[in-house]
């Protein structure tokens, strides 16, 4: 009503500015979180990986300090080098650990997919009243400590364990199977532990799918099996990619499962890393191993994010 009301327009500008600031502030919180809890530790680890081992506290040198002023700090920076990375290429142990980790993670991811897909499909096709309960059953193991669940598998898989007792009692086998302390136990452990990470994203894509698409495919001449591959499977690819990466990425760096179930023969980078840190107390080499592991995982992580962005784009 008031003509040319400059106070209100000023108010409006102020409000816009404050909402802009508030918006920035809101995203600043997660950014600060990432900065403090990811980027800073990452640089610390990176710095250690460029150092040398030392019998000292902390067990590497140089340890940066300002005791000798800026000049002294600069002298220490100049001591940093990539010797540890060169070392990683000289001892086959590391290469084999990486390759073995990727192999074990890849195979267990595939196995998780093979077991997880029918479960997710079954839940998505179940009557809607049952779905929540079935999903609950998938998530339920998370309520118990991960460590305890892996320990439980020792009890199941060991030569005189529950599985062997059952099979012997059923006369399926006559001698106990040796599963514990082999890579089979590691596969079982990883598939078991990571199954929910596969089932949940698969379920969410399968559940959204319109069943009339299958009917349409069959109406146009597809057998049920070919309709499954051409429609259901094809449309669940984003869920498959998400599930596989959610399993693969942590499985590569897995330490607890190979350590408890895999015995000394199973080579995985997580175990190698642990050995370097705690057995050899060689922090710089352990840090270099961790940095390389991160670089190896960056590829699938970036792919995962792109795949997710694409899926969101297509969903719109």
């Amino acid at each position: 009503m008031t003509p040319a009301s400059s106070p209100t327009s000023e108010n409006r500008a102020l409000r816009r500015l404050s909402s802009l600031v508030a918006g920035r502030l809101v995203i600043a919180i997660p950014y600060a979180w990432l900065l403090v809890l990811f980027l800073v530790p990452f640089f610390i680890v990176f710095k250690i990986s460029l150092s040398e081992t030392a019998i000292a506290m902390p067990p590497y040198s140089p340890a940066f300090s300002f005791i000798h002023g800026i000049a002294g700090l600069w002298a220490e920076v100049k001591k940093l080098g990539f010797d540890n990375y060169v070392w990683l290429t000289q001892d086959n142990l590391y290469l084999f650990s990486y390759l073995s980790s990727v192999k074990i993670a890849a195979i267990s991811t595939l196995l998780t997919l093979v077991f997880g897909y029918p479960i997710a499909y079954g839940i998505a096709r179940a009557p809607s009243t049952l779905r929540a309960t079935l999903l609950m059953m998938v998530i339920l193991p998370f309520w118990t400590s991960f460590l305890i669940r892996v320990y439980a598998w020792i009890g199941i898989l060991k030569p005189e364990g529950l599985l062997n007792q059952l099979l012997l009692w059923l006369h399926v086998i006559h001698e106990p199977l040796i599963i514990l302390n082999t890579s089979k136990a590691v596969y079982i452990g990883i598939v078991y532990s990571y199954l929910p990470f596969m089932v949940l994203p698969l379920y969410s894509t399968l559940e959204k799918m319109d069943h009339t698409l299958i009917e349409a495919a069959e109406d146009l001449g597809c057998t049920p099996v070919s309709a499954f591959w051409k429609i259901t499977f094809r449309l669940s690819l984003p869920g498959i990619v998400a599930g596989c990466l959610l399993v693969f990425i942590p499985a590569v760096g897995e330490f607890v499962i190979p350590d408890l179930l895999g015995g000394s023969h199973t080579l995985m980078i997580g175990k190698t890393l642990w050995n370097e840190f705690f057995e050899n107390r060689d922090w710089p080499v352990a840090s270099a191993v961790a940095i390389i592991l991160l670089l190896i995982l960056v590829v699938p992580i970036v792919y995962f994010q792109q795949a997710q962005a694409r899926a969101e784009e297509a969903g719109r």
């Binding site: 319109d210 009339t212 698409l213 009917e215 349409a216 495919a217 069959e218 109406d219 146009l220 001449g221 597809c222 057998t223 429609i231 094809r234 449309l235 297509a314």
Partner: peptide, 20 residues
């Protein structure tokens, strides 16, 4: 006779177009 062998085709209410 299963749907994929019947000489009839259907236009669905939701259209059921394949999104991919």
């Amino acid at each position: 006779i299963p749907p994929y062998r019947r000489p009839v085709n259907m236009m669905f209410q939701s259209y059921a177009l394949f999104p991919h």
